[in-house]
Simulated scan of single mutants.
Amino acid sequence: MAEHNDQGSKAEQMAKDWLVANGYQFITANYRYKHAEIDLIMEKGGILIFVEVKYRSGTGYGYAEEFVDYRKRQLIIRAADNYIYEEDWKKDIRFDIVGVYQSKSGGIAFKHFEDAFY
């Protein structure tokens, strides 16, 4: 596995643990539908939350949320629609972005964008 893929997997695990510690219930990870993938599916307060996780080792190339472009959002929405259909989900949904930032000293910080798009 390429190093950036390994870092992405670690970031997803850290984001999952961080969200669970903040009251979210983990449903599934890496849900795939055709060419789309949803990093994390969580639930909190009766809302199903589709989470895109972005890892950055710095902000020199931009912030995590800037890398979820229109095409990526459309793929996530398409996969979410399929998941909702498969599970017959009838309650509210939300799309979040969690940025996982690693400082030069190795420290980790999270930036959570609730209801980031639709």
Rank of each mutant, 00 (worst) to 15 (best):
A80V: 02
F50R: 00
F113Y: 12
F113L: 08
K91D: 10
E37L: 01
Y83Q: 06
Y61S: 13
Q25M: 12
I77K: 10
G45H: 10
V98A: 05
R32N: 06
W89S: 03
W89A: 04
I41P: 02
G23E: 00
E66P: 03
A15I: 00
A116D: 00
L40V: 03
L48T: 06
A79R: 01
D81A: 15
K91W: 11
M14N: 10
L48A: 09
I93M: 09
V51M: 03
G60S: 08
R32A: 02
K91L: 12
Y70N: 13
K104F: 13
V100C: 03
S105N: 11
H4L: 11
E114S: 14
A21F: 08
K91I: 08
G99N: 02
R71W: 14
H35E: 13
F117Y: 09
Y85E: 14
D96L: 08
K91P: 09
G62V: 00
I77W: 07
E37N: 01
K34L: 11
I38K: 01
Y55G: 00
L19W: 03
A109S: 12
Y63E: 15
F26I: 11
I49Y: 03
G106L: 00
I77N: 08
E114N: 14
Y70V: 13
Y63A: 15
K16H: 10
E43V: 07
E43F: 05
Y118I: 07
Y83G: 01
G23V: 06
N82E: 14
D92G: 12
K44S: 04
D39A: 01
K10V: 02
A109P: 09
L48K: 06
Y31W: 06
M14Q: 11
F50G: 05
V53E: 12
I84F: 07
D17T: 01
D6N: 15
A29M: 09
H35C: 12
Y63R: 12
T59Y: 15
E12A: 00
Q7M: 11
K44H: 03
S103I: 03
F110P: 06
A15Y: 06
G62I: 00
Y118W: 14
T28D: 08
D81M: 15
G62Q: 08
A11C: 00
Y118H: 12
I97A: 07
G107I: 07
F113G: 07
K10H: 09
D69L: 09
